[in-house]
Design a protein around this nucleic acid. Sequence first.
DNA 1: CCTACAGTCGTAAACGTTTACGGGATGTGT
DNA 2: ACACATCCCGTAAACGTTTACGACTGTAGG
Lengths: 343, 343
Amino acid sequence: MKGIRQLAEHLDISIGTVSRALNGKPDVNEETRRRVLAAAEEFGYVANQSGRSLRQGETKVIGLMIEASQEAVENADNFFLGVTSGLQHVFARHKLDLLMLPCPADEDPCEYLKRMVARRVVDAMIISNTQRIDRRIDLLSRAKIPFAAVGRSLSAGNYPWVDLDFEGVAERAVERLVARGHRRIAITAPSSEVNLGYVFVESYRRTLERHDIPFDPSLVIRVRSSEQGGYQAAHELLQLEDRPTAVILIYELMAIGLYRRLMEAGIRIGRDLAVIGFRDAPRARFLQPSLSCFRLSLYDLGIALGQMLLAHMPAYRAFYPDGGRNIIWPLELVPGESDVFEV
Amino acid sequence: MKGIRQLAEHLDISIGTVSRALNGKPDVNEETRRRVLAAAEEFGYVANQSGRSLRQGETKVIGLMIEASQEAVENADNFFLGVTSGLQHVFARHKLDLLMLPCPADEDPCEYLKRMVARRVVDAMIISNTQRIDRRIDLLSRAKIPFAAVGRSLSAGNYPWVDLDFEGVAERAVERLVARGHRRIAITAPSSEVNLGYVFVESYRRTLERHDIPFDPSLVIRVRSSEQGGYQAAHELLQLEDRPTAVILIYELMAIGLYRRLMEAGIRIGRDLAVIGFRDAPRARFLQPSLSCFRLSLYDLGIALGQMLLAHMPAYRAFYPDGGRNIIWPLELVPGESDVFEV
DNA sequence: CCTACAGTCGTAAACGTTTACGGGATGTGT
DNA sequence: ACACATCCCGTAAACGTTTACGACTGTAGG
């Protein structure tokens, strides 16, 4: 079966009618519609997507921009896969597909995105890892491409995003530690150009100051959010003269490296140093001693993100009347043994 | 910038020439080509992919079929993400994109695949989780859609695949345990309809019999390859009257559930029961006691898989002259403490 | 009998490319 | 002067759909 034309002449009907029949348009006799659907089923005819896309100007594909480097992917762990899974659950209902767009490490993400948008291969985009000032957001806004982002940014006024409540995490972590008598509390964070890194540390600082604890920049450790980063963070912690009694991690993978380095140094976690992590990935549950950390459901987040995107697309808006509002995603504290002692 | 037509009339050249200039065709003056490229750059013109696809009959998209259920995704962990990353590394060189095709849990995978193929939205497919008899393979072969699979199958004679060396894993695991005096060795595996499940157990059986240890079907525990499956496997182990002294896991996530159940039962891992796992995911490294397991690089596997696929596509064959041969992917044993005792 | 209208359907023009084909220059060798 | 090849470029036909438009029935209402 080549195309709609063959199907039409086999049925001795015009291709226009066949198309209308298949697409559920009203002005077609129910009897002929039945015949058309039966024949399509029989021959396994499905409309060629390129043809439709060209004519309709929409591709039924949602782009998902990701970082392509091996390191990024390995560290991202199943964060993205979890979100992706939720996204697909939403998109599948509308027969939308998800196209992964890995920006090569050596290319400017904005240029890459611009090319992909110009190719008109996606109807909408999901972006993540937003910078504090993110040109991709301006680009997409101007190009009028629907998009949703995981992570806030300062760019371009109003746009759909869902962001993890890092502010709350930092605040609650500090509160929890202060309540146990800690006053020298270190924190890890990515570069402050990444919005997350900025927000996280700012909230930490504010909470400290609310308790009359002066903010000490040397306690802010900027490392990569990876296992190696955790190792390095522990290393830097050990170098400090007035060593902190607690540390807040921004990413749970770091705990693994951090534990290792601290064990090498003979520091007893949960006794000599309190540790609070973030994101309850399965593996973090099996650290010894168990890691106190903040948990969320990536799958649910993906669903919310997908719905939010669709709520901003005219063709799907009706399905999600209240899906458009930005979300600060809450996290639940899972107490462990890594921060139980009092100082 | 709307399309090639506008670009052409701005340059006062025919669209045919513009197209040839952009696509590097030979019969165009170098001077005009320069002008065209400059103008395209200036206006940010990139050819509409639907138009090209329609005309050329190829979409520059590779499909990746995955299971869509939440459970599947969460258990799949970063296995798929790791492979995906390697795939993209290969595909990016040829400006190919990767489309995720999540088959809904309530739909027949083969029907789903057929629809996607008929839509002509992908040039080729990657499939995984192959069954011993897998209709998808026949379908793709007949439809003459290039594809590559992770996992062997009995279907359709010759097709490109890369498969993990489960045979070797089972053999070496048994050898290792037998050398330490074990004679009652349990093994976990998925259903034998999944080819992996069949091969794994067969190799286990052969190796046992080589050492004159009779094969005992009650020691083959068919559970899901998940954390819960591990828990359940431990549970079933404990029920056996003549309790085994060792167990071989097919998937490292299971170790987490298995450890937990065994600890609840007061069994000392590495003392009362030897455990050997598979696939050195980061989290498995942090089990106590550390898990002996078999490791591989998913990223490298993804690269090999991608190259293999391209080697089977006429348009890219030339780039990978020897990429077409099937691969049994080797695994490296990482010794841990979970199987150190002698019996 | 005329008009209006609803229900169907066919016709043909888009959508944005690529590419086979042919033709006008220009050069080159006899 | 002629044949012939080379280089460049324009023309127009595809690729497979969807959809605006108009046309043709039959029916109902006046």
